[in-house]
């Protein structure tokens, strides 16, 4: 059936009228802060306790906007007769946000989880030089880093959890085996049937998994 002439025009009018009755999408920003998701590329926070001054971030940065100074310190031997260790101490960690292009490569490459994305974005300055932020400021931003969001249902579990679980399972399996051997030894010794005991044992192991 061909459309009624003018029905398209009427449809257009209906769309605008319907939109008028709906809630607006305007974000009234200075009055109301936006709700930004975790990992929003607002600013880069530094968790400096984790930093080992490996310099990977500074080297991978395509803009060369990360400045790191450090020196080496010698730590006396922990035990009597042991060897002295040396470790790196961070003197300066600065990111020039007038150069940074927010690619996030530094955060990706950091092997010790010392860099994080923070949704904080209100750090405009009136002078471009003031956009180079030093480690104290970067450390402050670390407090604004939100918890990572929950995993999707059905997602692969995090690596560290998986590793911990594997270890726990191994341990449990080893214990079970040990218990079974013990039981077998006892069975052999007392000559009683072991069949009713086995299910009860499995129930005990359930929560450990």
């Amino acid at each position: 059936m061909p459309p009624i002439p003018g029905s398209g025009l009427a449809k257009g009018l209906a769309v605008t009228l319907r939109t008028m009755t709906k809630k607006t999408v305007t974000a009234q920003y200075p009055d109301a802060q936006p709700e930004l998701p975790p990992r929003t590329r607002g600013v880069i926070g530094l968790f400096e306790e984790n930093c080992t001054v490996c310099m990977l971030c500074a080297r991978e940065c395509p803009d060369w906007c990360i400045y790191i100074d450090s020196h080496k310190e010698t730590v006396p031997a922990a035990v009597e007769g042991g060897r002295e260790r040396s470790r790196n101490v961070l003197d300066r960690f600065a990111i020039d946000f007038s150069l940074c292009m927010y690619c996030g490569i530094c955060i990706e490459v950091c092997p010790f989880d010392a860099l994080f994305w923070s949704p904080e974005f209100e750090y405009a300055e009136t002078d471009i030089h003031e956009l180079t932020h030093e480690r104290d400021k970067l450390r402050e931003w670390m407090w604004t880093v939100p918890e990572p969001p929950a995993l999707d249902p059905g997602a692969e579990e995090p690596k560290e959890v998986a590793a911990a679980r594997k270890a726990a399972e191994k341990l449990a399996a080893a214990q079970e085996q040990a218990a079974q051997e013990q039981a077998a030894q006892r069975q052999a010794a007392e000559q009683t049937p072991a069949a009713p005991e086995q299910p009860a044992r499995q129930e005990d192991e359930g929560p450990a998994e």
């Binding site: 605008t16 009228l17 939109t19």
Partner: peptide, 13 residues
Amino acid sequence: KVMAHMQGRLGPM
């Protein structure tokens, strides 16, 4: 105001 709301905005506030 009407134009703003028809476009899902708030208009002058």
